[in-house]
Simulated assay, not measured.
Amino acid sequence: MTILVTGGAGYIGSHTCVELLQAGYDIAVLDNFSNSSPEALRRVSEITGKEFPVYAIDLLNLDELDRVFSNHTIQAVIHLAGLKAVGESVSSPMHYYYSNMTSTFHLCETMSKYGVHRFVFSSSATVYGLPESVPITEKFPVGATNPYGRTKQMIEQVLQDLYASNPAWGISILRYFNPIGAHKSGRIGEDPSGIPNNLMPFITQVAIGRRDQLTVYGNDYPTSDGTGVRDYIHVADLAQGHLRALEKCLSAPGLDIYNLGTGKGYSVLDVVRAFEKVSGRTIPYTVVDRRPGDIATCYADPSKAQHELGWKAVRDIEEMCEDSWQWQLRNPEGYKEMVTTSQANGPRGFLVAPSLGV
């Protein structure tokens, strides 16, 4: 039985694959590599000592998705694939709505066709929009303020309607906050294309000399230092949350929503200072206007996940910064692509193995 991971070559996906393989699961990965590298999956194989099939296809291609399901006995799907930049979603909303929604429709349709009813969905705290208070519980009303967040909110509703129509489904919706950090080995981490949209890779690229200074979007928020406050969670903790959610889905049908965060809020400048402490580097920055769709303060109440999944984030902000820095130090230009394909799993599939690369 196989766990299909969509978007498995991405930042969160690659770390989730490590956790799944180390827990003894067989996996298959589907990724279109539009914002990720096959090298990440080769390194996942290197870290775990295990090989797994990878399909370089897009979820928008329904026929190729069908072939993936026909090649494997799939037990469950962890769905991480999707466009994710808030600013880009504001400037290109139709692209986001079409890609994120249609790809999920295709996935759910194909799962239903093959009788696969266990699903972990990568949602986001952005669905909460402008919360009236913090910490945020899963019972808070949703009201995303940007197209990216609205795609997540809409997909959540689709999944709730899907479960209502067929209670055989087991679905975990994970609303996670702001992942940073990297695998302790320094072999996999966050490697964005172009100018980073997220805070930590921007900081690390300044520290390594790839960029001159950090851009801070707004210092006039009603926070302790005027910069936005977020709940930063180590990506390894987040990946383990996916494993716990999968186990919950596999145990019984049902639909549950979980916040994955630390329950602590740090401002942009708090993170900068923590990074400077562990790295010994000074991070110059300049302040510009707020980004459209951003909010002042957002952090989780993660107690439901702790109670029902037995999961809790355990790594602190300094460890998050240290692991991010070690990733950047060891990979100053991010991933170097070394791609070797094998047709062992069909015309668009290839194997990742310690001896093969990808």
Rank of each mutant, 00 (worst) to 15 (best):
T6W: 03
T6I: 13
S14R: 06
L21F: 04
A23T: 05
A23Q: 05
D26W: 00
N35F: 08
S37I: 03
L41R: 01
R42E: 10
S45L: 02
E51S: 15
P53E: 04
H72I: 06
T73S: 15
V77T: 03
I78F: 00
H79K: 01
H79C: 01
L83T: 02
V86D: 00
V86M: 07
E88P: 03
P93Y: 09
M94G: 13
Y97R: 02
Y98V: 08
N100G: 07
T102Q: 10
F105H: 02
H106G: 06
S112A: 15
V116N: 01
R118E: 08
V120Q: 05
V120H: 08
S124L: 10
A125S: 15
P131H: 08
E132P: 09
S133V: 05
P135A: 12
T137M: 11
E138Q: 10
F140P: 01
P141K: 06
N146D: 11
N146T: 03
P147S: 07
Y148E: 02
R150A: 03
K152F: 10
Q160N: 14
Q160C: 11
Y163G: 07
S165K: 06
N166Y: 11
W169N: 09
L174M: 14
R175T: 01
Y176L: 14
E190A: 11
P196V: 07
L199C: 07
P201R: 06
V206L: 04
I208D: 04
R210P: 04
R210N: 11
D212R: 15
Q213L: 03
L214Q: 00
Y217V: 00
D220T: 15
T223C: 00
D225E: 06
G228W: 03
R230K: 09
I233K: 00
L238G: 09
H242N: 10
L255A: 05
D256L: 13
Y258C: 07
K264W: 05
G265Q: 02
V268M: 04
V271I: 13
V278I: 10
R281S: 08
T282A: 11
T282H: 15
I283P: 00
Y285E: 01
V288S: 12
D289A: 15
R290E: 06
R290T: 13
P292C: 08
G293W: 06
D294G: 09
A296T: 13
A296F: 10
Y299L: 04
H307E: 15
G310S: 05
I317R: 05
S324A: 11
Q326N: 08
W327Q: 05
L329P: 01
L329D: 11
N331A: 13
N331T: 01
N331C: 12
G334F: 07
Y335L: 02
T340V: 14
S342I: 09
N345M: 14
G346D: 08
P347V: 07
R348N: 15
